[in-house]
Amino acid sequence: MASTQELKDVIKDTLDNRGVLGQIKARIRAEVFNALDDQSETKPPLSNENMIINELIREYLEFNRYKYTSSVLVSESGQPKEPLDRDFLAKELNVKQDRHSQSVILRSKAVEIFWQKSAETEQQGLIVNGGKR
């Protein structure tokens, strides 16, 4: 007959292997943060730039199913509860929506565009300087 400790270990391992234990821990952390969050404390106004940055972070977190981390971000940042419209974000980030960009998170597409422009700028600098750095 299994001891109580062995039974606890099996249950813990099973929950851990299924990914449930991590979700439970994340949920507890989110609830603790929500309980400790002082609603009377005024937060600084959320600028448009920070709202867009927070939304990209939220999109990343939700894409990766970090929903409790996302809820803490929304709670602490003052971000609107409802996500911003994806088309609005794409327009603000100058991301052209196509079949490929709609299947990836906007953060990835925005970073891809940034790297392309950086490479183009560097290439233009090399051409202007005769290939010298």
Rank of each mutant, 00 (worst) to 15 (best):
T69W: 09
N54L: 05
G130E: 09
E120Y: 03
E49S: 06
F114T: 04
M51N: 08
E120A: 14
R18T: 06
R29G: 07
K67C: 04
S70I: 01
K117I: 05
E49Y: 05
T42E: 13
S108F: 07
K81A: 12
V72I: 15
A30L: 03
A110H: 14
K132Q: 12
K67I: 12
Q116C: 05
R107F: 15
D38T: 08
V32W: 03
D37N: 15
V74I: 15
I113C: 06
I57N: 10
L15E: 07
S103Y: 13
A2Q: 03
L126R: 09
N48T: 14
N34L: 00
L106V: 02
N64H: 07
K25S: 14
D38R: 08
S3V: 01
Q116T: 14
T4F: 10
N64W: 00
T121P: 00
Y60C: 03
D87E: 12
V104E: 09
L61M: 14
L126A: 04
N94K: 15
V74C: 08
R58D: 11
S47F: 02
Q124K: 11
R58K: 11
M1F: 01
L61F: 01
I127N: 02
T42W: 00
V74R: 14
R133H: 05
K12H: 03
N54E: 07
T69R: 02
Y68V: 00
Y68W: 00
E112A: 13
S77H: 07
I127M: 04
I52F: 15
